[in-house]
Design a protein around this nucleic acid. Structure first.
Length: 264
DNA sequence: ATTGCTTCCTGAGCGC
DNA sequence: TGCGCTCAGGAAGCAA
């Protein structure tokens, strides 16, 4: 599932492949995928691409923007042949130079929203700090954890606390910090909170360096798998490096993997 | 205010 | 071979 490193890898790919391309049209192949806030006949060229949390934002020259969320199985695949199709194509952005960007999404939760460049994106207003920014520091997280009775695992998945983490990276971060995912957020010591800050940045940067994690569906814009799955310590694992069994439990409906020897 | 359950959806994997 | 079941999960919406 695309989390921050996968989304960033997609953006890096888009930056080298679609900047400056004129959007001729966008075709919706499955209803509910594409949402037009306003009727638009011409979007213009793709001017810049940015990320906020797990959202991809494409700015166009005629003062519009496309806001894309891949959710669990969404992929943006660049294709030079207009006739090529994809097995679960939900929408296609057709460029004037006869290339296209396919939005492929098995589980159909992903969305593309077209809106005016200066309009607020409601979902973005709720997002917490970018984990790789200076705003994500000990003081910030201490404040956010102050009243959290919920387990730290659940808190770190909350996009209004940190924008961009998902189930895989939260598991890996807590493993590196040696913190039990079941521990209530507000009970963490300052030293532990500092560890979370540190390893969140370390793990995300390492994952970006390896083009993200591919468990099943995730692919880059050039349809390549990531490599960070080869460096996971707990997510989807049966045995810890220490030799102990990795525990798999449910927290707020999500699976959590951890080593109860190393993480206590 | 906080938390966690349910919902959306499809395909993989499993037992029989 | 094929059926039915469970599981995977990001985030919105809702209920406690």
């Amino acid at each position: 599932m695309p989390e921050l490193p996968e989304v960033q890898t997609v953006i890096n790919g888009l930056n080298s492949l679609v900047i400056g391309k004129e959007i001729q049209k966008i075709i919706e192949l499955r209803s509910g995928t594409l949402e037009w806030q306003i009727p638009i006949t011409s979007l213009g060229k793709i001017e810049s691409i940015s990320r906020r949390g797990k959202y991809i934002i494409l700015q166009t020259s005629l003062h519009y923007k496309l806001v894309i969320h891949l959710r669990m199985t969404g992929k943006l695949i660049f294709e030079r042949d207009l006739d090529k199709t994809s097995s679960h194509s939900r929408a296609e952005i057709i460029f004037a130079d006869k290339t296209k960007l396919i939005f492929d999404d098995v589980r159909t939760f992903g969305k593309i929203e077209v809106m005016k460049k200066n309009d607020d994106i409601p979902a973005l207003k709720k997002l917490g700090a970018e984990p790789l920014s200076d705003k994500f520091n000990a003081e910030y997280l201490i404040n956010k954890l102050r009243n959290k009775k919920a387990p730290i695992k659940t808190v770190l998945l909350d996009q209004s606390v940190i924008a961009g983490l998902g189930n895989i990276y939260v598991a890996e971060i807590l493993y590196r910090c040696k913190i039990d995912p079941r521990k209530a957020g507000k009970t963490l010591r300052t030293a532990q909170i500092k560890e979370i800050i540190k390893y969140t940045k370390v793990v995300l940067q390492e994952a970006i360096k390896h083009n993200g994690t591919t468990i099943s569906d995730y692919r880059s814009v050039e349809d390549k798998s990531g490599e960070f799955q080869n460096f996971l310590n707990v997510y989807g694992k049966k045995t810890c490096e220490c030799g102990a069994e990795i525990h798999k439990i449910k927290q707020a409906g999500r699976s959590t993997y951890f080593c109860n020897i190393c993480q206590s």
